[in-house]
């Protein structure tokens, strides 16, 4: 089911609904009530109540949009939707209103594993100061052509 990935294909007919699309349970006690945000902090193991508990049982989706001149899909934001088919449509309505895109991906937010911001040091500081990993570190040896 890729109704809006191809601008040549008009909006899909209703028969294209993906009935097996991931559904979010309407039960407030179910796993849907834990925060669907990527587990970015140590408290994420605890079930965190979503706002408007019970009323809003829709899952969170992350939206990626490819612009007509862009090569890759870029994260545009997030939204709530009951399933993938509606998430695509909501994404179209929320993130392509001003002619921003020609293709949309939606991903359940809890399917994204994110790095831990508290672990920034051990994760990302190691490359700092390692100039030798950049081409500019090296001086060109004499007589080398085509560099």
């Amino acid at each position: 089911m890729s109704p809006h990935g191809n601008p040549e294909v008009p909006a899909s007919s209703a028969t294209e609904i993906d009935r097996d699309a991931q559904k979010v349970s309407a039960e407030p006690e179910a796993s849907a009530s834990t925060t669907p945000r990527p587990a970015v902090d140590s408290a994420a193991n605890q079930p965190v109540e979503t706002p408007a508990e019970g009323r809003n049982a829709w899952g969170l989706w992350e939206v990626f949009v490819r612009s007509s001149r862009g090569l890759s899909h870029v994260h545009a934001g997030s939204l709530h939707a009951p399933d993938a088919a509606m998430a695509l449509r909501n994404a179209r309505d929320l993130y392509t209103r001003r002619n921003e895109g020609v293709s949309i991906w939606v991903v359940p937010a809890d399917a994204i594993a994110a790095s831990d911001p508290d672990a920034k040091g051990s994760f990302f500081e190691s490359p700092q100061g390692k100039d030798y990993r950049h081409a500019t570190y090296y001086t060109k040896s004499e007589g080398v052509k085509h560099l």
Partner: peptide, 22 residues
């Protein structure tokens, strides 16, 4: 017609969901 095509899709999606919901 292209815009209305999307309106069709929007309403049909909701017909199916409301009819098959609770």
């Amino acid at each position: 017609v292209k815009e209305v095509d999307y309106h069709r899709d929007h309403s049909a999606q909701w017909i199916l969901r409301l009819a098959g919901g609770t």
